[in-house]
Design a protein around this nucleic acid. Structure first.
Lengths: 342, 342
DNA sequence: CTAAGCGGGACATAATACGTCTCAGTTAGG
DNA sequence: CCTAACTGAGACGTATTATGTCCCGCTTAG
């Protein structure tokens, strides 16, 4: 027996299209509210008039409200949108995609949000929302959560919301300075996340370039040593995955590091480690904090990365065999499946 | 979490209307195929042009085909329609109605088809289809199925289809001549059903008016006696329910019988028995065949009756306490609930 | 042989959707 | 304090679609 949705797909395909359109409007509005018609129409790449018809309808349905500052979802709209998410994933076949990816990559869970973060930047925020959603499914009281840097993780931080069962949760950066820009540093993101979640955080300040002696004396420093112990015991890790070359360049690595990365055919990067196509570590940024081995003791590892351009990197990283939940987007998911199964 | 349908009702309020319209078109087409646009539009009480739009759409979806003889459902259309049935019942609240009726009438199962056979005659065929559907859920090989007469049962016969697990099944008329017209006699219907099911049948020829002596000698006749035994052992009974007065008149009963029926306030009739409002037998047509007591030994009794005008009769009959599956229509179901629960 | 029923084509009209522009009010940033 | 950018709302002509109402050539049952 087919599902109701698949019956409807045959009997009312045009209706499902409309449904999708309205869903997209609501979803985009949630991301940008409060916002006006013209800007929203622009984001959705539809004309103002079309959006206007939809918006008028949705307003009449009590799902959104107009005000002089722009439109915003009502309580009911938020609720509906939340309930709609799994349905629309099934409609657009993302459900199916998730299953196939889980199989192909041999990992416990995959979550895909619609869109491609290469083309449309706000998809990162949707991934962030999804990642936060997954996180919330776990027991979080008095837990240590280690996070990395990167624009994707910044998206996760944006979408963090406080909740009662995050009492006593502590956010820490996974590893010390990796040479990122301030807004994408693990420290910054860690602090932002904790602030949004209304919980505590600890920061790890490590200068970028450090002599061996200074390094040794630093990790013996009481405050640092304590924190390092906490970080290494983190039960939950949320991290991004990057392309090796891009990351090396963004971090202004020295020429010989870039050369090494190139010669060893590194394709992926995650929390300071560089991996080749087979998932083998080919380079490691020397800094203190969480090490690859520590991941095996973590109960929950969430990897967040999207955009078709990152497909190869995601694939390579997951070949390490780390049992990680993957939160990605449609663009990356499709590219991954084309690369692996074909 | 709300159901998909209630989410859709918020997001596409007119969807259910469209869905219902297309469903009705398919359902009516199944009943009347092959048929042309104009006749079909007439049956559905919509204009030709509107039907035409729907039909064109459904054709494009591969659910029906056009030919010079008229339109007909494709394999896929049949399949979809079948799967759609429970969904639409839920949508139109018939699901709910069934539950309430089951409770109110204290019987094991109730099936309701949309419509009212008082207004639209083809609803009888839908009841027929439903009854056949219920029947098929039972183990039928080498079983004896007793059937009665009446226009409703004629509808059941129309919808009978052969199936592999009806091998060795034997159809018999429940009771001898009750004075009906030929096309509505139990014998005729019995034969038709068996022919449609590709199985065997036996007929019971009993003259309408019979002296006591002739009656006695008839039931001693070897062929008749054998058959009577078979009939009385029937494990499955399918019968209609009629209004007492209407039935008495249609059968051209004698005046004193009609008087008796009237004086005893008979309201319902089933296989030759007349019942008052409390479900008590007030008159019985004298003929051979299945008796009321025999019903208690049957494993499956299916009563088929619809139309709001028959509500009182159905209610009265079911008060006998016979554990019967009821197949009825929306009109009768609503009238029943108004009569009993209010 | 004929009358009824079939699908398909056609067309004017009504209803709806859409693109485009205007306007007055609000607000954020200089 | 001012202005530039943004807000919702209104308006209006034009496509596009939906609908009612024909007609035509064909097949088929009676």
């Amino acid at each position: 027996m087919r599902s109701l949705l698949s019956l409807q797909q045959k009997l009312l395909p045009d209706m499902l299209e409309v449904m999708n359109k309205r869903y997209r409007v609501l979803r985009q509005l949630r991301l940008m509210q409060p916002i006006g018609r013209r800007s929203l129409a622009n984001s959705l790449d539809i004309t103002e008039r079309v959006l206007r018809s939809e918006v008028t309808f949705l307003k009449d349905q009590g799902l959104l409200e107009m005000s002089i500052q722009g439109m915003h979802l009502t309580e009911e709209g938020e609720q509906l949108l939340m309930e709609l998410e799994p349905v629309m994933n099934e409609v657009s076949g993302l459900d199916n995609l998730e299953e196939r990816l889980k199989e192909a990559l041999n990992i416990p869970e995959v979550f895909i949000v619609p869109g491609d973060s290469d083309d449309t930047p706000w998809v990162k925020k949707e991934m962030g929302r999804a990642a936060v959603g997954r996180l919330k499914k776990f027991q979080l009281t008095r837990r240590v959560i280690a996070v990395t840097g990167g624009t994707t993780l910044a998206g996760v931080a944006d979408m963090m919301i406080p909740s009662s069962d995050m009492e006593g949760t502590l956010f820490v950066p996974a590893r010390g300075g990796l040479g990122e820009q301030v807004e994408n540093q693990a420290n910054t993101i860690c602090a932002k996340m904790a602030r949004k979640a209304h919980t505590d955080y600890r920061l790890l300040h490590v200068p970028d370039q450090l002599s061996e002696e200074a390094y040794q004396s630093l990790i013996e420093e009481p405050g640092v040593k304590d924190l390092l112990g906490i970080i290494k015991s983190a039960g939950i890790v949320i991290h991004g995955i990057g392309e090796a070359k891009t990351m090396a360049q963004r971090r202004k690595s020295t020429l010989d590091v870039i050369d090494k990365i190139e010669q060893e055919h590194a394709v992926a990067e995650a929390f300071g480690y560089y991996f080749n196509q087979s998932g083998e570590v080919v380079h490691k940024v020397k800094t203190i904090g969480l090490q690859l081995e520590d991941l095996e003791r973590s109960e929950l590892v969430i990897a967040v990365a999207g955009g078709r351009s990152k497909a190869k990197a995601i694939e390579a990283y997951l070949k390490t065999g780390i049992q990680s939940i993957l939160v990605t987007d449609e663009g990356a998911a499709k590219a991954l499946l084309e690369g692996t199964s074909l």
